[in-house]
Amino acid sequence: MSRIAGRFESLRERGRKALIPYITAGDPEPSVTVPLLHALVEAGADVLELGVPFSDPMADGPVIQAACERALAHHVSLHQVLDMVRSFRRQDSDTPVVLMGYLNPIEVMGYAAFAKAAHAAGVDGVLTVDLPPEEAAELVACLKGEQLDPIFLAAPNSDAERIRRMTENGGGFLYYVSFKGVTGANRLDVQAVADKLAQIRGHTGLPVGVGFGIRDAESAAQIAAVADAVVVGSALVKRIAALADQPGKVAALAPQVIADMRAAMDRA
């Protein structure tokens, strides 16, 4: 069983929902990332989503775009992101790590070489925003060959056939994008999410995480009530941005937003 599947199973046994924070690797500077990942686990994260910075993050709103730009000012490459995961794994062999990003850096490294390096570094899953299942066969084969879970995004307008295809090709969990829009927008409609998740569960046995638009403890708790996992990106990255000129304080202060969400989710 993969580390991600194992984590979801143990959470289910404890009646707890997964909290999955997203950060952009190297934001605001590379030395912050590994201590921040550990601090997020301390604050209650169950799975970590580590963003690979990209120059043209088409699916992201301004908060994560700016995070990519801060990281790229330090020339953070996919190789360095894998080094960060390797370094994180020296002290934490339990918490699953999912890389999230765009296809082009992986294309440049080569699918097989990437999958091998990611597995060796201790990565568990890979989510490629601009790679729909239709184009994913080759990368999926390489990832699965290295026991990595390909994680797909489902959207409000994905039909049953597409959900089935994502389930066949994917692993770990299904990431449901809560609304039509970019990351960080303020459009969350909990009832609409609940309705769509009920449909989706009819077509997949994978755990379903929900992301986009979860901005505070209250919305995290509401989503946790209907989903298997809550993914939080922009709300956390905003805290990091506010501390960008004091990078030494990021790991100590930014994870508070995750701790607050954890408390609210566990109370519910």
Partner: peptide, 12 residues
Amino acid sequence: GGIFVAETLMEP
């Protein structure tokens, strides 16, 4: 060529 976009754009 091909289609390399986020899932939400597949339907449109």
